[in-house]
Design a protein around this nucleic acid. Sequence first.
DNA 1: TCCTTATATTCAAATATTACGATATTACAA
DNA 2: TTGTAATATCGTAATATTTGAATATAAGGA
Lengths: 86, 86
Amino acid sequence: MDYDKQSEILKILGHPIRLKMVEGLMNNECNVNKIMEVLNIPQSTASQHLGKLKSAGVLVSRKEGVRICYKVADKQVRDIMKILQG
Amino acid sequence: MDYDKQSEILKILGHPIRLKMVEGLMNNECNVNKIMEVLNIPQSTASQHLGKLKSAGVLVSRKEGVRICYKVADKQVRDIMKILQG
DNA sequence: TCCTTATATTCAAATATTACGATATTACAA
DNA sequence: TTGTAATATCGTAATATTTGAATATAAGGA
């Protein structure tokens, strides 16, 4: 196991806002504005958390005009989320 | 899902030393001295990481004379580890 | 008792993370 | 163009985490 890499992913998931984001993006694609509204957090906060998740490879993004749509990319993360959901 | 609780567990697992500890304690019970030797880290560092894992409910400990033996307690954590191991 | 071993706790410095306002960038529409 | 909406990035203060030496505690043996 690559401990540095795997622990990095767990650490990134280990924040309540990011965990909510990832759960919400498991089945739906969603743009930043919607995400910040749903989670009721400032735009820069939303953007930064999404940025971290993307850097870690958890999410991927797609441009759609002005909007940026995020969704879960990582199979392993998907499996972990299923476990957390019970 | 309890986001605070679940993200807390992921955060605790999200450290390379702690991830190594948990993996090593999946199948074997082990005392602190052995753990610090195997991981080649100072005693206080080992003890603190083990303390965090125990506080989070990831590990349980058992007294055996002077020794304290740790092992993985949490079923969910066990499942997550299996995913990480591929 | 005194010594030794095993473990936990305390403390402080170094480092990392988080939050969010302010500012920059980008795309599109008027 | 100019304006506006969507997103990213910057700056930075507040907070949290990590590390390891020093110290405390606890158990067993001589």
